[in-house]
């Protein structure tokens, strides 16, 4: 009895600091934000105490916000798809590499993570600008006669998000591919399956849990991307996370900003849950 109590006390002691931080730093602000999102915004008076779903109605009914939501979701899906397509071969190569190269290869994947998102986006600005590296190369090769506009386009933001998410996707896929049985691949080939058929019927299905995990991770990161769309998309390109900040910081419209934040979270959660459940059911056998 007393041993159990000591055990419980020790348990509580271990959990306490993290719990305090999470409650103070995440739960309380979120509750506060939830309350704010139900307030009204009066120009000149800023936030007015109220209990209304007006902000949410505005987000859903206003084409301006709907377009931002569609852009964000489309961007997150596209960037994630590109990450998976580009990342899968890289992850397989690392998983198959001899042990002595593996550490070096993994380090190369992790290396970009040492550079923050904003710094990386700044790098992309240098590469994609009017007088940037890409335009310089294209002009030199004579592919374009005058500098093309890469900055502040959908493509620039997508490239930026892909470069941010790719290391996470590769690492997640690699750890799953590492654990799959090499002999199942050999078995498929011995039974007459060409390398591509083997990949389609054996490697990919066995890697599905990793593909789902990596995809969800990338999707959530892309949905909430901030620095990349702001720096590479410019003032006219709108995604949800920057528009939350814009409402709060520029317009001082806390109620609408809070409502946008919860809408973003809700869309992310619903899409993530739908994808997880659908795939879990399709691959119930695996």
């Amino acid at each position: 009895m007393s041993a159990a109590t000591t055990e419980q006390r020790r348990f509580a002691t271990l959990l306490a600091p993290a719990t305090v931080i999470v409650v103070a730093g995440l739960v309380l602000p979120l509750l506060l934000m939830a309350r704010y999102s139900l307030n009204r915004f009066e120009p000149g008076q800023f936030m007015v105490e109220a209990l209304t779903f007006g902000n949410y109605v505005k987000i859903i009914s206003d084409p301006y916000y709907r377009r931002i939501a569609v852009t964000t979701v489309t961007m997150a899906f596209t960037a994630t798809a590109i990450c998976l397509v580009v990342g899968f071969p890289v992850a397989s190569a690392i998983a198959r590499a001899p042990a002595r190269w593996k550490t070096a290869l993994l380090l190369l994947v992790i290396l970009p993570l040492f550079v923050g998102n904003a710094v990386r986006a700044a790098g992309w600005m240098v590469a994609l600008g009017q007088k940037g590296l890409l335009n310089w190369i294209l002009l030199r090769l004579g592919i374009v006669s005058e500098p093309a506009a890469f900055m502040y386009t959908w493509g620039a933001v997508c490239a930026g998000i892909v470069s941010v998410n790719l290391p996470y996707v590769v690492l997640t896929l690699q750890s799953v591919l590492e654990g799959t049985e090499k002999s199942a691949v050999d078995a498929a080939q011995s039974l007459g399956a060409t390398p591509f058929t083997t990949w389609r019927l054996v490697t990919l299905p066995l890697a599905m849990p990793g593909v789902v995990a990596a995809g969800l991770l990338s999707f959530i990161l892309a949905m909430n991307a901030y620095a990349t769309p702001v720096l590479l998309g410019g003032p006219t390109f709108q995604m949800m996370a920057p528009s939350v900040a814009d409402q709060v910081l520029q317009q001082s419209n806390w109620p609408l900003g809070a409502a946008l934040a919860f809408t973003l979270t809700a869309i992310t959660l619903i899409l993530t849950a739908t994808v997880s459940f659908t795939l879990a059911r399709t691959h119930a056998g695996a």
Binding site: E181, S183, A184, D186, A187, A188, Q189, S190, L191, G192, A193, T194, P195, L201, V202, P205, L206, M208, H283, G285, A286
Partner: peptide, 22 residues
């Protein structure tokens, strides 16, 4: 010839069944 054109039957130590198939 690659393995998939040799018409061989192969049985492995760890069975190497496809876990996602019946």
């Amino acid at each position: 010839e690659p393995p998939y054109r040799r018409n061989i039957g192969l049985v492995f130590q760890n069975y190497a069944l496809f876990p996602h198939l019946t």
